[in-house]
Computed example of a mutant assay.
Amino acid sequence: MFFKMASSALLTFCLVASSQAAMTISGTRIIFPGNEKEVNVRTNNKGANPSLVQVWVDDGNANADVNSIKTPFMVTPPVYRVEPGKGQSVRVIYNGMALPQDRESVFWFNMLEVPPVMQNAEKVDRLELAFRTRIKIFYRPKSLSSSGVGEVDKIKWEMLGDNTGIRVTNPTPYYLSFDSADVQLGGKAVALNTEMVAPFSSKDFLLKNKGSVAGLTGVTFRLLNDFGSAYKGQLNFSNGKELVLQHKK
């Protein structure tokens, strides 16, 4: 019961006090190959006290009831205790639910950390917070042998007709996870709002501070790879509207 109640109300806690969380996950994303039945995820207790942990997978609805979520994955053990300075590997197991085989699918791995009850806690006024960490799971069908970064030259970039931003079109079967993107205006880098772009879809990246991208000379972007590090790309202004990938670094 505690886990169910805590999981629905701890996103705010994570935002304001995440630096106090003791539990960490090795890696910033999970790639689940379609030819595998399970993958291991390592969790570690960096704190000075034992931690009680609950793990599960959701479909993107962070506030869904843990006990009623239906996803293609189960995690075992679902609840465990980790001593300070120790770690625990958990198994993410594919349950056979049908998933598209012509593109990636995305889900979320959740780790809820519950602080231990301290001795004599009833004698002290204190606020105890449960911390939740979420990272993406990318299910990659066995027919796909590359990655989003591997297909970066296929991404289409073009200015919006009202000059408020850039339209990014992803013709690939991979999710594109952007860390950042900037347009070059008057010799200065001006930030765009970025989003993850799903396979075979488009997203509009608008200026963070509104305004116009008219007169831009190029775009620089950072695209996260399978390991969570950034591929850096640069696009130069081309034919009055379209942007083309000029070089990689």
Rank of each mutant, 00 (worst) to 15 (best):
Y174F: 12
R81H: 14
S143R: 09
Y231T: 08
V124L: 12
K154A: 12
P171R: 05
D102Y: 10
D204I: 03
T217F: 06
V197Q: 02
E38L: 03
I93F: 08
K203S: 11
F131S: 02
D102I: 00
D153M: 11
N163Y: 10
G150W: 01
S212L: 08
G150P: 08
W157Y: 15
A21T: 07
P199M: 04
R126C: 06
N209K: 11
L127G: 03
K142G: 14
V117H: 12
E104M: 04
V92F: 01
S18K: 10
Q246L: 00
K4I: 06
K208E: 14
W108S: 04
V41K: 06
G187H: 09
M159W: 09
P141T: 01
N61P: 03
E151V: 03
G218R: 09
L10S: 14
R103M: 03
L224G: 07
F109S: 04
V79T: 13
N63Y: 11
S147N: 09
N225I: 06
F109C: 09
S18C: 15
I137R: 04
P33N: 09
P171K: 00
P78C: 05
D65P: 05
F32H: 02
Q184D: 15
D179N: 14
P84C: 02
D102P: 00
S26T: 12
P78E: 14
M1E: 14
N35S: 13
Y175C: 04
L144M: 11
E151T: 08
L10I: 01
M1S: 13
N49K: 12
V106I: 14
V213A: 06
K136M: 07
Q234T: 11
K46N: 15
G60T: 02
Q184F: 06
F227S: 13
T76L: 11
I69W: 01
F205Y: 11
F109P: 05
V79F: 07
K70G: 09
L207T: 03
L11P: 07
R29D: 09
Y231K: 04
F3S: 10
V190T: 12
V213E: 00
T217Q: 15
A62W: 10
R140D: 00
W56P: 06
D102S: 11
I135Y: 08
D179W: 03
V55Y: 03
N236V: 03
V41G: 07
T76M: 12
V114W: 00
R167Y: 03
G27M: 02
F32M: 05
S143Y: 09
A191C: 03
M23S: 07
